[in-house]
């Protein structure tokens, strides 16, 4: 089921939390929503799930518009809100039965669906406990179980792995990937490795606007327009090495790496490579070049470039 977001704007007072965002998600796509805190990720998700109405623009989930057919939209969506609110005094099983009934799962199927959810989300040992007694990781699983209990075609997950330990994060990611094969998934996070690990496509938003959109590969390529090298030069005077490197024609920026002797970070001008020039400079000055490592620009850098302004 496709999701089409068309120019939505949401204002809180005079501040625009979301400012004319448009995008399209196809069935079977896992879209990672990335952005610093307060960028408008949660607001966008609340609009798609009919929790909030946008001031301008609209959203279509499949053939249904959130403004005209909210019931149809809601029944297609499984939603895990930020902070994972739950009824802490309810036992896990009762809670899942309650959500299943509210989602309109047929009465005779509720029991088997609950069993399935408990198995998929690894809640077997916890199923009779009250949710309030569960640890954060298990609560997160309950939150996920309630989101997928009616087998929705669209999943909206707001920071699904926040507060989990590394093992649990791996598990939840695996589960999301699995679900993403046949469902449309939008997940938000500010943890970068997470998007790289789970998403087919990344959307970076900042101050309510989309600043980047593409697969992790294309975004990384976009960021690695310039070569970045880590080099180690021995037997030379630090300042001389620095100035010599800086004078090379293809080099844009030399940065002595803090705390590491003889190490430098060299950034070339776009479309240029300085490897040969560095080598030749070392030969000329009888320095010993003991290391030269090309460094990949990470998504972190792109993220920082795009969102710190």
């Amino acid at each position: 089921m496709d999701i089409t977001v068309e120019g939505i704007t949401k204002k809180y007072g005079h501040q625009k939390a979301v400012d004319g965002i448009s995008f399209h998600v196809k069935t079977g796509e896992v879209l990672g929503f990335l952005g610093p805190n307060g960028a408008g990720k949660t607001t966008t998700m609340k609009i798609i799930t009919c929790m909030m109405a946008p001031n301008k623009g609209g959203v279509r989930v499949g053939d249904h518009s959130i403004a005209d057919e909210p019931m149809e939209v809601k029944s297609q969506i499984g939603y895990l809100p930020e902070n994972n609110p739950l009824y802490l005094d309810m036992p896990v099983i009762d809670y899942l039965a309650y959500t299943a009934a509210l989602q309109g799962v047929a009465k005779h199927r509720i029991k088997s669906r609950i069993g399935e959810m408990i198995r998929t989300c690894g809640l077997t040992a916890e199923k009779h406990k009250r949710i309030g007694e569960l640890s954060k990781g298990y609560r997160q699983r309950v939150g996920l179980a309630q989101a997928i209990i009616h087998d929705p075609r669209v999943l909206i997950l707001d920071e699904p792995t926040s507060g989990l330990d590394p093992n649990q994060i791996m598990e939840i990611r695996r589960l999301i990937k699995e679900l993403g094969k046949e469902k449309t998934v939008i997940l938000s996070t500010h943890i970068l490795p997470e998007v790289e690990a789970t998403c087919d496509r990344i959307l970076i938003i900042n101050k309510g606007k989309i600043v980047a959109d593409g697969t992790p590969e294309t975004l990384r390529k976009q960021a690695t327009g310039r070569e970045l090298l880590r080099i180690r030069i021995e037997d030379g005077d630090r300042d001389r090495v620095f100035s010599t490197l800086q004078e090379l024609e293809s080099v844009a920026l030399v940065d002595p790496m803090p705390g590491m002797q003889n190490y430098f970070e060299v950034q070339s001008h776009p479309e240029h490579s300085s490897r040969r020039a560095i080598f030749e400079a070392c030969v000329r000055h009888h320095w010993v070049l003991t290391e030269m490592t090309p460094m990949e620009t990470k998504l972190e850098d792109l993220f920082r470039d795009l969102t710190v302004k």
């Binding site: 809100p81 609110p85 309630q146």
Partner: peptide, 14 residues
């Protein structure tokens, strides 16, 4: 207060 209202209101109920 607990935010469960959001869960409730994003379910297909009025």
């Amino acid at each position: 207060k607990t935010g469960t209202m959001e869960l409730l209101l994003t379910k297909p109920i009025t």
